[in-house]
Amino acid sequence: MINILSRTKVFGGEHIRFSHESQVNNCTMTAAVFLPPQIRESQAPLLIWLSGLTCNDENFMTKAGAFRAAAELGLAIVAPDTSPRGEHVPDDPEGAYDFGLGAGFYLNATQAPWDENYQMYDYIVSELPDVLDEHFPVDTDNMSISGHSMGGHGALTIALKNPSRFQSVSAFAPICAPMDCAWGEKAFSNYLGDNEEDWAKYDTCALIEAGAPELPTLIDQGLADSFLEEQLLLDELEAVCEDTGYNAIIRKHPGYDHSYFFISTFIEDHIRFHWDHLRQA
C-alpha cells in the first residue's frame, strides 16, 4: 500500500511522489519516481538515485535536470529519502547535519538506538525495489544505481556488494573512504560500533581492495569542491583502483564545487552511461 502525495507531468512522463510504511526502517518512508512516456508500451529500466547529507527525495528531482534525457531514452528514476523519519526516530543528540536524520549512510545499523530504524541498506537493496515492482511499471530486474556525496558512497558500496542486481554504477563527489574521514568515522562508530571490520563492509576502497567484482563505473569530481581533501578522499580510491586493476572512469573537473550546479552540468552523461548498459541487459 502506498500513498500518492503528488503527480506532475514533465517531458511527457510523470513525476510521482509517494509514501509507504517501511517494515525494515519501522517508519513512514517517502520517495519519488519519474516514469518516462515509454511506460505506456512496456516496463522501463530503472536508475536508483541516492542523495547526500541533509537531503531527501526532493533534491535530485527538483535540481538535477535529469528528466529530459531520461524521457528521451525511456529510463525511470527513483529517488528515496536519505534516512528514516518520524518523531520516534532518533537523531543526532546535538542536531548536527552529518548524523541521524538526513544522514542514514545507506547501511544497516547494529547499535542501539539506531538499529530500530536505520536499516537503509536493506531498504535500498530489497524493500524499495519490491514496493516499486508492486506499484509502478518499472523493471527492477534491470537496474543501475547512482548518487552524490553520501549517496555516492551508498551507490558504490551497494553496487559492489550486489553486482548481480545492477548493470552499472556512478557517483558525483562520493565519500570514497569513509573509514578515513570525519563524516564516516562519526557515522560508522555510532551506527556500527567500534569494530572496524564491520566498517569495512561499507567502505568503497576496502571493498575494492578485498576483491569486489568490477562493474561499469563512472565517477565525476569537481576540483573546487570544499570537501574533497578532508571528507571525499578521491585520491585513496584512485590508488586502490590502480593497485587492484579496477577499471573505473574517474573524471575531474576544474572549477566545479559540491553543489547541484555541478551535478546538473554532467547528469546527462550519467543518464546515457547507465542507459548504454541497461539497454544491453
Rank of each mutant, 00 (worst) to 15 (best):
D180A: 14
V131N: 02
A187T: 02
M179D: 08
Y202W: 08
L192Q: 07
N195A: 12
Y202D: 09
L128I: 02
C205W: 03
K201F: 02
P163W: 03
F172P: 04
H148V: 12
G193A: 07
M143S: 11
N190F: 01
A159E: 08
V131K: 06
S164A: 10
E238A: 12
M143L: 11
S170K: 05
T157E: 05
I208N: 07
D130H: 13
N142T: 09
L215W: 04
F166H: 08
K201A: 13
I145G: 05
Q167E: 09
N162Y: 05
L128D: 13
T204H: 09
D133T: 06
F188A: 06
W199Q: 02
P129F: 01
L218P: 06
E134Y: 04
C181A: 12
L234C: 11
S126T: 15
D225V: 06
F166D: 09
F227N: 12
A187K: 01
V240F: 03
L234N: 06
V240N: 06
F188H: 08
A155M: 00
P129V: 04
L237I: 13
E214F: 08
D235I: 01
S189E: 11
D203G: 03
P174D: 10
F188P: 00
A187Y: 06
A177F: 14
I208G: 08
P216Y: 02
L218D: 09
D203L: 10
A224Q: 10
E134S: 13
L207C: 07
L192W: 07
I145F: 07
A224L: 07
H135S: 12
P137E: 03
A239Q: 11
P178V: 05
K201E: 12
W183R: 08
P163F: 02
P174W: 06
F136A: 10
G222F: 07
M150W: 01
N190Q: 15
G184T: 04
A212Y: 08
E196I: 13
W199D: 08
P174M: 02
A155D: 08
A177D: 14
V169W: 03
Q221C: 05
P129D: 07
S226K: 11
L218G: 12
A173Q: 06
E238I: 13
A239S: 13
L207I: 10
L237D: 04
D133Y: 09
D180L: 13
A224S: 15
A182M: 13
L207A: 03
W183L: 15
A182K: 14
H148M: 08
T157D: 03
A173R: 07
V169I: 10
A182E: 15
P129Y: 01
A155G: 14
D180W: 05
L232P: 00
L218H: 12
L192V: 14
S144C: 13
E209R: 14
S170L: 09
A200W: 05
P216L: 10
P174N: 01
F136R: 03
Q221Y: 06
A210P: 07
F166A: 10
D133G: 09
F136V: 11
M150T: 05
S164K: 13
D194V: 12
E127N: 07
E209A: 15
D180R: 14
D139W: 06
C176Q: 09
D130P: 04
P163A: 02
G222N: 08
F227R: 05
E230K: 14
T157Q: 12
L160G: 06
A206F: 06
S146V: 11
H135D: 04
S126C: 14
